[in-house]
Every structure is written in structure tokens, then in C-alpha cells.
């Protein structure tokens, strides 16, 4: 059994949300540089050039890559031999978010009530936290701040087994096509298949944070990922939707077993400023 004071969680979260918003992950950067070289249209090239220059400015000046610094989403793997002491687990995470968003000059983008009042909570809390108990005595925290523009273009569909893989692929491609320039393409496309209604959406979200080029370990799903990426990039939506070769940088599928009657499929889109940062305590 290992004791971890929750103040360690607060400090880790504070640093993670700031770093995730200032520094673009290297795999995304490399992929956007490649897209810049590949594009031939003038507007696509100039947009990608601005995006790359923006990475440099963010890093140098510690200014957020995007003004939408997102809702603070955390995937936290907790070793089953860890014992948190010194306070409440969720409060500690939220305190880290509060400190990070205030001290890091990040935008507070949450309203207290979704429909009636919509008053800003002023400190970007509450965070969205997905804890999971795993073997061991370590804690892994992945911070994945998620902007509203791409999230709004996401969808869950309860499909039929008879729809088959063709049906799934058509749904994914159609979702990206309908989204056009709204989710800030080039996008990352996260696809969750199976589980149940909400698990498919969670799988789609988790899929977004795989590294560029890292295919599904199942060769059949890996092929589908590649085919989907080709189909999506043939749509011609391009950077910011103004036309071009690069509509998506990647398509990632996560799947799991599901009920004999069901085939839930979720598509979660992320913008070209796909931010994530992790730490192990």
C-alpha cells in the first residue's frame, strides 16, 4: 500500500493543463508539417503555415494554442494499492484545474447550467474525470482539454448488426462530411464501436489520444482505419474547410464486445490542436 497526498494530484493537474494548452504534441506537429508539404492549394498551404507558426508562438510566449482551452477532461488510472490521503480525490483534481486555468491565463469555458442560466463558473471547474482501477501502486493522469467546436460535431448512433462494416464506415465518413469546416480540420477522428450507448462515446474519446500512425493492434480494424482515412481525405474539405487534401490527420478506432442486439457507434472529432499530456505519480 502506498500513500499519496492529494496535494500531489492538485500540483500535477495544474501543470498538466497549462503544458497541454501551450505545447502541441510532437506527433501532431510532425503530421501537420507533412500536410503543409503535401498541400497544393494556396489557401490550404497558408492556413497550415499559420497553424505551424502558431505552435511556435504558443511555445515561446506560453500562450494557449487555442483560445478555447477546453473543458478539462482527465483519464486517471489508479493503482489498486494506492491510498489517497489529505483530502477528497475529486476536490483535489478540481483545485488543480482552478489553479492551472487561473494562473496559466487559460480561458474559463464552462457554464453552471446547460440550458436555463448558463452562468460562467469562472474557474473552468468542474473537470470531467474518468477514473479506472488498475493493478499496481502508481497513478497515471492523462489531461485532455477538449474544445467545443469539434465536440459539437460528434455523434452516437445505435446501429444494427445488419448495417455491417460498410454501414459503420458510411456513418463515420458522413459525420465528417457534414461537419465541414466547423471542427477546425485537419481533424483527428475517434471512432468507438461496441460496449453500450455511453461506452461507445467514451471509446471514441479515448481513441483520439493515440499517437499519429499508431494503428489498431487488430489487423482488420487497422485496415478499416486506413480505408476511412483515405475516404475522408478524398472529401476535399481540407484545412479549415476551404478545400484541400488534408481533412483528417488520423482515424483511430477502439472497439469492445457488445450486446447481441446492439451495435453502438460513436464518432468523436478533435481539432488540429489536439492536446494531451500525461504524468505518472
Amino acid at each position: 500500500m502506498r500513500d499519496i497526498n492529494v496535494s500531489e494530484l492538485t500540483n500535477a493537474v495544474k501543470k498538466l493543463v497549462m503544458d497541454a494548452n501551450y505545447y502541441i504534441p510532437k506527433d501532431i506537429r510532425d503530421s501537420l508539417e507533412k500536410a503543409y508539404k503535401d498541400e497544393t492549394s494556396q489557401s490550404a498551404k497558408s492556413i497550415l503555415q499559420m497553424i505551424l507558426k502558431n505552435h511556435d508562438i504558443s511555445r515561446e510566449k506560453k500562450m494557449p494554442l487555442c483560445q478555447d482551452t477546453g473543458v478539462a477532461v482527465f483519464f486517471i488510472d489508479i493503482g489498486q494499492d494506492v491510498h489517497f490521503v489529505g483530502g477528497d480525490f475529486e476536490d483535489a483534481i478540481n483545485e488543480g484545474v482552478r489553479q492551472g486555468y487561473i494562473e496559466g491565463y487559460l480561458r474559463k469555458s464552462l457554464v453552471n447550467d446547460p440550458v436555463i442560466h448558463r452562468v460562467n463558473t469562472k474557474d473552468n471547474t468542474p473537470a470531467i474525470i474518468y477514473p479506472r482501477i488498475v493493478p499496481g501502486e502508481k497513478v497515471k493522469i492523462v489531461a485532455a482539454p477538449k474544445g467545443g467546436g469539434a465536440e459539437n460535431m460528434s455523434e452516437v448512433k445505435m446501429m444494427k448488426a445488419a448495417d455491417g462494416i460498410e454501414g459503420v464506415m458510411d456513418f463515420v465518413v458522413e459525420r465528417v462530411k457534414k461537419s465541414g469546416g466547423n471542427p477546425c480540420p485537419p481533424v483527428i477522428v475517434g471512432v468507438g464501436i461496441g460496449g453500450d450507448f455511453e461506452m461507445s462515446a467514451l471509446l471514441a474519446k479515448k481513441a483520439l489520444f493515440r499517437n499519429i500512425g499508431e494503428r489498431n493492434s487488430d489487423p482488420e480494424y487497422a485496415e478499416i482505419e486506413k480505408e476511412l482515412l483515405n475516404r475522408i481525405n478524398a472529401l476535399g474539405i481540407g484545412p479549415m474547410g476551404l478545400g484541400g487534401k488534408t481533412t483528417a490527420l488520423e482515424v483511430f478506432i477502439e472497439y469492445m464486445p457488445c450486446h447481441i442486439a446492439s451495435m453502438p457507434v460513436a464518432v468523436n472529432l478533435n481539432c488540429h490542436a489536439t492536446r494531451h499530456k500525461e504524468i505518472i505519480l
Partner: peptide, 13 residues
């Protein structure tokens, strides 16, 4: 006019 989404630090300058 379309501005480049996600080029927020650059635009701020």
C-alpha cells in the same frame, strides 16, 4: 471572412 481556427496566439499578436 474566415480566420484560422486554432491559430489563436498568432492572431492575438
Amino acid at each position: 471572412f474566415a480566420a484560422t481556427g486554432g491559430a489563436a496566439a498568432l492572431i492575438a499578436l
